[in-house]
């Protein structure tokens, strides 16, 4: 008769470890807000939005907006906040998820920088993951959620301790990014005019949100001059939308500059942690002010 004592031991210990981890993980303060890969970072944001009660504010956009972490806004009037600034995806993808919920967040902030382009390099992978069993199970079994992945928790911890402060060493001021090829590539991408179908899709989504009573704000994220305001068709389209639906717009780059805050980028395009924190606070301040000004 073949041996199976070791197999029993392995499975028994695995069960004990899984139960222990499953019980401890949700009650400890450690969870990942960042992840080591785009896919996992997107999972964290989506799960956080879909598996928790409807937030008061949701930020929807690309990885540019993804830098405005909910924890930066936790003590502002916007909280609780969910961030659907998804890496490698366009804002339309995130808006579909916002609209898929039975209750809509009262405030929806939509990134305007890449509004006219269908940017979906990670869409198929993320869609199939969302439709998969593991994602559905994660709603009921917290240990399966991406925020409890040990590697992502470790990565988040490292990032918080390495780049968590304003002006952290890893961040590069905007001026010195001019030679970075990543920056040079951006205008070509973001200056695409976008198809009529893409624009119509965004219009439909905005209309649906308005019909559900959401307050919508269009947000211009700083992107190191990667898409100059005058040349970026996304901004022109955002202006159109703002006129059509009477939406307000926030230009974070201008707001930060007005307050004399320097903007630092990690890769010449995405905000460094310190600047992202500043930007989050400024955004909260502007939106609160605007809300109070509205009769």
């Amino acid at each position: 008769m073949a041996s199976h004592s070791q197999a029993r031991k392995i499975l028994g210990l695995a069960a004990a470890l899984a139960v222990g981890f499953g019980l401890l993980a949700p009650v400890t303060p450690w969870h990942a807000e960042l992840a080591e890969s785009n896919f996992q970072a997107n999972r964290i944001r989506l799960e956080s939005f879909l598996f928790n009660p409807t937030p008061k504010t949701v930020l929807v956009g690309t990885s540019l907006t993804g830098r405005l972490r909910p924890s930066y806004l936790s003590d502002t009037g916007l909280a609780p906040v969910a961030n659907l600034g998804l890496d490698g995806l366009d804002p339309m993808f995130g808006l579909d998820f916002v609209l898929s919920r039975p209750t809509t967040p009262p405030l929806v902030v939509i990134e305007a920088n890449m509004l006219t382009q269908s940017y979906d390099s990670n869409e198929a992978t993320l869609k199939s993951a969302v439709e998969g069993i593991q994602f559905r199970l994660a709603r009921y079994v917290p240990l399966l959620r991406a925020q409890f992945r040990p590697s992502s928790m470790f990565y988040s911890w490292l990032k918080d301790h390495q780049g968590g402060q304003a002006g952290a060493p890893a961040a590069v001021p905007a001026a010195s990014d001019a030679t970075n090829p990543a920056v040079a590539a951006i205008p070509a991408v973001s200056n695409q005019a976008g198809s009529d179908a893409t624009k119509e899709r965004v219009r439909c989504q905005v209309r649906s949100l308005r019909e559900r009573g959401a307050r919508i704000v269009l947000l211009r994220m700083p992107m190191n001059g990667g898409a100059e305001a005058g040349k970026n068709p996304s901004f022109a389209f955002a202006d159109e939308l703002a006129r059509e639906f009477q939406l307000s717009q926030v230009d974070l780059e201008a707001e930060l500059a007005a307050r004399g805050l320097a903007i630092c980028y990690t890769d010449g395009l995405h905000l460094a942690a310190g600047s992202a924190r500043d930007a989050s606070r400024v955004l909260a301040e502007v939106l609160e002010r605007e809300k109070n000004a509205t009769p």
Partner: peptide, 23 residues
């Protein structure tokens, strides 16, 4: 050794559950 080995494999199962990559 057998307990150690079992713990290593059990940890692998846990990581399979909680730390798998993009399928």
């Amino acid at each position: 050794f057998r307990w150690g080995e079992a713990l290593v494999y059990a940890s692998m199962i846990l990581l399979l559950l909680v730390n798998s990559g993009t399928p």
